[in-house]
Design a protein around this nucleic acid. Structure first.
Lengths: 262, 262
DNA sequence: TGATAATCGAAAGTAAATGAAAGTTTCAAG
DNA sequence: CTTGAAACTTTCATTTACTTTCGATTATCA
């Protein structure tokens, strides 16, 4: 590997490191130093910087992939991950919706897939309440779907709206079903998300809906993010993919959640 | 490298930089300085300006492509009529905004141009209240701009939010300046728009702002739409293009409006 | 518990970025 | 045609960021 092109930019090198760690499941300091033909000290600096951003996990002598999305990753990146599973989950979730319903769609990459699946069907009347900009854009063009958007401060990393205004508005609404996209779901910690404001809003969404459906790809199982939304018992249905961990699913079922795998 | 071409315009050069970054996946400051035969300091200024608009990501010694916006974003904003005029009007309007301000941006194709012009400038703090989805998307990526979105029912034809929820939320806000995109403006009928709900919301926007700036291309002058927003006297400033009818402008001035033509 | 590998810290060299001052260009008025 | 303001550029000095080398220190594991 002759890496003597005009010399990599620092960020490029770090992106490559993350890639390698994700791909191989691991990487050693020596290995990386040899690959880029730089000193181990610099590699260590890189690893430390990446670990600070939770892009990887630091170990003695090397690095491992980061556990998963408990950190606040931009939507554009989340979208790329587990895209196929999310599509299937979205389609399964959309089947739970009946014509005439009022539903709440949380923001998030998985719930955007629900919106896309909803577009495929023919509706005579459907009301969708959402705080996600992209969900509103997906559904806005469908005449038979009434889209009500919660107002509030725009949270750029997820293109969603949060804050008191959204909460106040939500308090006046009520819906058949909530589809909640979760960032972490764990038997002990319950349902969690990285942003406290988002968590507060999500908790209110649960109160506003008669039934709560959590949608998440299997990588979220067993993860915990900073802010707690609710305990598992607040959920009625969970939809995830077939790679989900059996023990975690059992905990979900014991909490009274109907689990569906696609 | 023909040195006798009339020297690239700044915007042209920046466009080429973005192209190169997208194409090659990277670009270094040195490389770019050599390509355009200008100093590295200027290239750095370019990169900083582009990074501010989230067009690229800045790194040491160069730049990398910006992480792609969400997959298939329907950002295909319908190319409006009178696009050139609207762009100029947008830029003139943006000049009225000072750092630290709180402004209200109505939805509409002309106000989207104001948002784009705002992106070009450097802000340390700016709060934008809007009911337009595309405006929120334009400004969402700029960290120094706080975007507050009014909630409400999505009106598909204009991708804007209207209704009681938006009105209620707006009633609790106050701003230095409102930029109102109007569909009709006429000496007798005043400022008008086709949708009654939109008109009601716009009227509240006027009340929430200390100063109201109407923006419209000259084709709107003398037009009347269904719903009246306010009389001419409610406006403080009007920005339109140079093709505007002189008699109509006189009526505006007589109503106490400061008229600016671009 | 040692032996060994890995990490940390400080010093030093180099590339890149920043800030300030001064010179240009552009563009719109007078 | 001239003037003036605002936006661009450049040069030059200074500051910051990144990288390496070389000991000292701290984990890890047989």
């Amino acid at each position: 590997m002759s890496e003597n092109t005009p010399r990599l930019l620092v960020e490029e090198r770090r992106r490559l490191i993350v890639e390698q760690v994700e791909r191989d499941g691991r990487a050693t300091v020596e290995q990386l130093a040899a690959r880029f033909a730089i000193s181990t000290v610099t590699i260590r600096a890189d690893l430390e910087a990446l670990a600070r951003n939770a892009a990887i996990v630091r170990t003695h002598g090397g690095a491992l992939p980061a556990p998963a999305r408990t950190a606040d990753t931009p939507l554009s990146i989340k979208q790329a991950r587990h895209a196929a599973q999310k599509k299937r989950i979205g389609q399964a979730a959309a089947k739970l919706v009946a014509d005439g319903d009022t539903i709440i769609l949380d923001s998030g990459s998985t719930t955007v897939e629900i919106a896309r699946a909803l577009r495929q069907r023919r509706w005579s009347a459907l009301t969708v309440v959402t705080n996600g900009l992209y969900i509103a854009l997906e559904l806005g063009a469908i005449p038979a779907i009434r889209v009500m958007m919660l107002g509030g401060l725009l949270r750029p990393s997820s293109d969603s709206l949060v804050g008191p205004a959204a909460e106040q508005m939500l308090a006046q609404l009520s819906a058949q079903r909530l589809f909640l996209g979760v960032d972490g779901i764990d038997a002990e910690a319950g349902v969690t998300t990285p942003d406290p404001q988002e968590a507060a809003l999500n908790a209110l969404m649960i109160r506003a809906a008669r039934e709560t459906v959590a949608v998440f790809d299997s990588s979220k199982l067993g993860q915990r993010a900073l802010s707690v939304i609710a305990p598992l018992s607040a959920l009625h249905v969970a939809i995830t993919d077939s790679a989900a961990d059996a023990a975690q699913l059992r905990a979900l079922r014991e909490a009274g959640v109907r689990v569906e795998q696609v």
